[in-house]
Simulated scan of single mutants.
Amino acid sequence: MSEKLAKTALTPATHTTPPAKFSHGVRKGNLLQVAGQVGFGPAAEGAAPTPVGPGLREQTLQTLANVEAVLTEGGAGWEDAMMIRVYLTDTAHFAEFNEIYNEYFASLQEAPAARTTVYVGLPAGLLVEIDALAVLG
């Protein structure tokens, strides 16, 4: 019988405690799932997190930084990402998002991750949410 792999919750120091019972990321064996991250900057102790800016560029770059922080906390990087899911609030943002995304990953040497983009409703002020699945080793 095989040994059961431990499941580890991940919360980078830059992240606040989630508002419900979930983890920012979970690693089990060589799999790392990053929960949906949004464009919140690091919040001051006791302060509510807020979006970094009203624009798609600022929020996308912060969201990607937040996903990367969880990947790093779990011992991974973008080169380990197999799947990235993007949630946009406005179909008109698709082309601009792709420009920002392509710029962000321009220096990635590995094959790019697979990606899905869907349109959703997010809390007021938020324009984008991103999650990722990474495989390590």
Rank of each mutant, 00 (worst) to 15 (best):
A92I: 01
L64A: 05
L31P: 00
L88S: 06
R115T: 02
I130N: 05
E45K: 10
G121E: 15
S2T: 10
A81N: 06
L136E: 03
A43C: 06
H93S: 11
G36W: 12
V118G: 13
P54G: 11
Q59W: 05
G75Q: 08
G25R: 01
G77S: 14
A81F: 02
T63C: 09
A44E: 15
A106R: 11
Y101I: 01
V34P: 00
A47S: 14
T8H: 12
R27N: 12
V67Q: 12
R115G: 03
T63A: 08
A69W: 10
E96A: 11
T63N: 08
N98A: 12
Y119M: 02
A114R: 12
N66A: 07
I84D: 07
G125N: 09
I84H: 03
F22K: 12
L126H: 02
V52N: 09
F40L: 06
S23W: 06
E99F: 04
T117Q: 07
R85P: 01
A43Y: 09
T60P: 00
G46P: 11
L122V: 01
S2M: 09
A81G: 03
L32F: 01
M1L: 10
V38F: 08
L126V: 03
T14M: 03
T17C: 07
S23I: 00
P49M: 03
T89M: 09
A76H: 11
T117C: 07
L136M: 05
P42R: 15
Y101S: 12
L126C: 04
I84Q: 09
E129F: 01
F22L: 14
E68N: 13
K28P: 02
M82L: 15
G39T: 02
G46N: 13
G29F: 01
L108Q: 14
F40R: 04
T72D: 10
A134M: 04
M83N: 14
P54F: 03
D80T: 01
L64H: 04
F94G: 07
G46Q: 07
E73C: 10
K28N: 09
S107M: 10
A65D: 15
G121N: 13
N66P: 13
H93N: 11
G125V: 00
I100L: 10
L108N: 10
A114P: 00
E110P: 01
F105S: 10
N30R: 09
T14Q: 12
L32V: 01
K28V: 04
D131E: 11
P18N: 09
P42Y: 03
A132V: 03
G29E: 13
P18C: 08
H24T: 00
Q59C: 05
W78I: 01
Q62L: 04
Q109R: 13
A106M: 05
E96M: 07
Q33Y: 12
P18F: 10
L32G: 07
E73I: 01
T60M: 00
F22W: 14
E3R: 12
G53H: 00
A92R: 13
R57F: 00
P51S: 05
V86G: 08
L108V: 08
P19W: 09
V52A: 02
A6V: 06
S107I: 04
A76P: 11
